[in-house]
Design a protein around this nucleic acid. Sequence first.
DNA 1: ATTTATTCAGAACATAAGTGCTAATTACTC
DNA 2: GAGTAATTAGCACTTATGTTCTGAATAAAT
Lengths: 215, 215
Amino acid sequence: MKKELSTKQKNILDFIENFLNEHHYPPTIRDIQQGCEISSTSVVDYNLRILKQKGLLNRDAEVSRGIELVNHDSIKTDTELIEIPIMGNIAAGAPIHLPESNNWANNQIDSVSLPSFLTKGKENIFGVKVKGESMIDALVADGDLVLLESITNKPNNGDMVAALIKDQNEVTLKHFFIKNGKVTLQPANSSMKPIQVDAENVQVQGRVVGVIRSI
Amino acid sequence: MKKELSTKQKNILDFIENFLNEHHYPPTIRDIQQGCEISSTSVVDYNLRILKQKGLLNRDAEVSRGIELVNHDSIKTDTELIEIPIMGNIAAGAPIHLPESNNWANNQIDSVSLPSFLTKGKENIFGVKVKGESMIDALVADGDLVLLESITNKPNNGDMVAALIKDQNEVTLKHFFIKNGKVTLQPANSSMKPIQVDAENVQVQGRVVGVIRSI
DNA sequence: ATTTATTCAGAACATAAGTGCTAATTACTC
DNA sequence: GAGTAATTAGCACTTATGTTCTGAATAAAT
């Protein structure tokens, strides 16, 4: 199969996009035929098949106007921006203490708007800015923004969490496992040693749902 | 005219919205009929007329699927989000070869909408999906989305780039340094050994501007 | 209860629109 | 230049789908 698109195929794609923007429903084959000045419906059909084969659009058989542009606006999974608060800094390893109180409320230092696919529609998402190189074992670099879901109940075993180790007033990003009242905090880098702490000594500040690095 | 909508009319509106989200084209009258368990097409038509009269949708006469929902997502314009293409997968270490041609055109597999702070207003940003655990030394995990800026000129020394090592047809994310025609590719993890290659053997596919991890 | 407006049922109809041929043409390859 | 593949033309066919008509059922008003 030829790799590039013919001018005719590009025209068709453009036409479909324009048509969608104008009408908010897809064109028929005959619409395309007229719009692109093509002599026969079969030619349109032929080229649409090729475009489908190349993954540029989808077609539903025997459905009028059953064309979906793969990369069109209306297909964007999430056009919605959700503003989430950035609740301060987080550090691990080299213990940088959290602000006085150990709740995160009222410590909002900033906010960012993120597309909803990053928050998966969940509520209670907030961000923390990583300070220092100490979380490399969680594949998190200095300056990264870590997205956390604040959870009330215990996390599932294996979840990556932001865990506050109370008696050290230190926060760390680790995989969380609990067994018989003992919590194991396992670095993502499995060659690093896990930490064992009493369950009462751990407060899970949130479940990690994402990391954003902007260079 | 009655002011409120009947349950049937609300159902129809909901159905149309769901249908649009699922298919990206509007339903036919008969789709609505089945979806809302209505006994006759004429009933659907009747209620659609009412909905049109109330300004909740538009219909194009004698046009199949000629329904447009007023206030639907696809009509909203959102200026804050920038859509960037995802141009395939990237892997390093365990060399997964790129598709035959070494240009990225026509390899778009998906797209995401990102807030503009991640692209810093730049054009020519695209994403690649990371496959495999082999880029841990760049603090990039399996499944991460790496944002690249396609650049024409040489990158600055120290930039992190996606570098294609031509004779191995292998791509890697490394810090880029050039000196006397020799390119040094330095892993982010400085304890790892850098790679030395001839400048002609390296093609910089893009400059890394961000990483997005969604768990 | 009678009238009136609204809503529903069922069917038939007309056209909108996808699909499938066959042949002609053009582009590519050897 | 022969031979093959890709593309185009034109047309017929079938299905998909909007439209319309008549009458019945229901709800609202008098």
